[in-house]
């Protein structure tokens, strides 16, 4: 049965690596629901957060194949209950009293106000940002973007630190 998994991948900064990592998933017909990439807390090491929906057996194999890529340091797989996930959504909405009421009721942040539209920001789970979109829709949403999800693991340590320490010991 399909289940949502969060794969975090730590890698060197190499041209083309994103393609190599996603190719492992496409070869197994695993669809990517969300993907974000940026430098991690460790300088020079990049972190990919990939949300996929697949079977448990598939995800373990895919993670091993990702880890096999030469420039990948480590790939970890988590289930939803092991992480705290968030994403940011931005909305460009036509100004109206209805919209202003929604903003107040849903604790939405206003980023900028223009003569005929406002830019709103909502942080939360995908269903929260989606729910706000549905509410705003009748009043004219001109643009709507989502950042994709980032995740922080609940366990005490960042596992990569332990891993890097173990490499340094073995040198």
């Amino acid at each position: 049965m399909n289940k949502e998994y969060i794969i975090t991948v730590f890698s060197e900064n190499k041209v083309g690596l994103l393609g190599e990592i996603t190719a492992v998933l496409t070869q197994r017909s695993i669809n990517i629901e969300s993907l974000t990439v940026s430098e991690s807390a460790l300088q020079g090491i990049h972190k990919f957060t990939i949300i996929v929906s697949t079977e448990s057996e598939q995800i373990e194999k895919a993670a091993k194949q990702i880890e096999k890529i030469i420039d990948v340091l480590k790939a970890f797989v988590y289930t939803q209950d092991e992480v705290v996930q968030q994403e940011i959504a931005l909305y460009k909405v036509t100004r109206s009293t209805n919209v202003e009421k929604l903003v107040r009721d849903h604790h939405v942040r206003i980023l900028e106000i223009f003569d005929d539209y406002i830019i709103l920001e909502k942080t939360g789970h995908k269903q929260d940002t989606q729910a706000l979109f549905e509410l705003l829709k009748p009043y004219g949403v001109q643009q709507f973007v989502r950042s994709g999800q980032v995740a922080i693991i609940k366990s005490k340590h960042e596992l990569l630190d332990e891993y890097l320490e173990s490499i340094n010991k073995n040198i």
């Binding site: 190499k14 041209v15 083309g16 393609g19 190599e20 190719a23 070869q27 030469i70 420039d71």
Partner: peptide, 14 residues
């Protein structure tokens, strides 16, 4: 060629 050989090499670089 980097893109083409990603799937058929252990590693590649330009």
């Amino acid at each position: 060629f980097i893109q083409i050989t990603q799937a058929v090499t252990k590693w590649n670089c330009q």
